[in-house]
């Protein structure tokens, strides 16, 4: 229960930050990308502020405690190699973000703003996630004779 309440509150801080920053507003995100047109550099300040706090905060956290408060260890991604899936997937994501102005972290808090476009985007994105999972599972199976 403590864990769930904590995650709810931390998610709330995330969602409020996204919403006031402009990351949940596709028009603003698209203008951030439109460097040759109606460029709006605001999102540089979002990334800058978030990176600054996270980089310093992570250092303090990892230096101060051997394990997180609620769990026995930090769950950090172990893979370090640069592979085709990482680069190709990121390129595909970039195209989709450039088309829609929505990224997953922007879209979820945008649900709370109550506009009808957001659930349409999120439903489509979930279908995309399920398609990619099915394709990955098929590729992982040994080829049938």
């Amino acid at each position: 229960m403590k864990k769930v309440l904590s995650a709810f509150l931390i998610g709330g801080i995330f969602g409020l930050g996204i919403a006031i920053s402009g990351m949940a507003n596709p028009a603003k995100v698209l203008n951030f990308f439109d460097v040759a047109g109606t460029w709006d550099p605001s999102l540089l300040f979002v990334m800058g502020g978030a990176l600054l706090v996270t980089a310093i905060g992570y250092r303090i956290v990892f230096g101060a405690r051997r394990q997180p408060v609620f769990e026995s260890q930090y769950a950090l991604p172990g893979t370090t190699g640069i592979d085709a899936q990482l680069v190709g997937g990121s390129a595909i994501f970039g195209i989709g973000w450039g088309i829609s102005g929505f990224c997953p972290g922007g879209a979820i808090p945008a649900l709370g703003l109550g506009h009808p476009e957001t659930p349409i985007f999120i439903a489509s994105m979930i279908v995309g996630i399920m398609i990619a999972r099915a394709l990955k599972a098929r590729a992982a199976r040994p080829a049938a004779a």
Partner: peptide, 14 residues
């Protein structure tokens, strides 16, 4: 279309 592409991309790109 944007949503589908984002969903596929973030899944492959982790």
């Amino acid at each position: 279309i944007g949503g589908l592409i984002v969903g596929i991309g973030v899944t492959y790109g982790s």
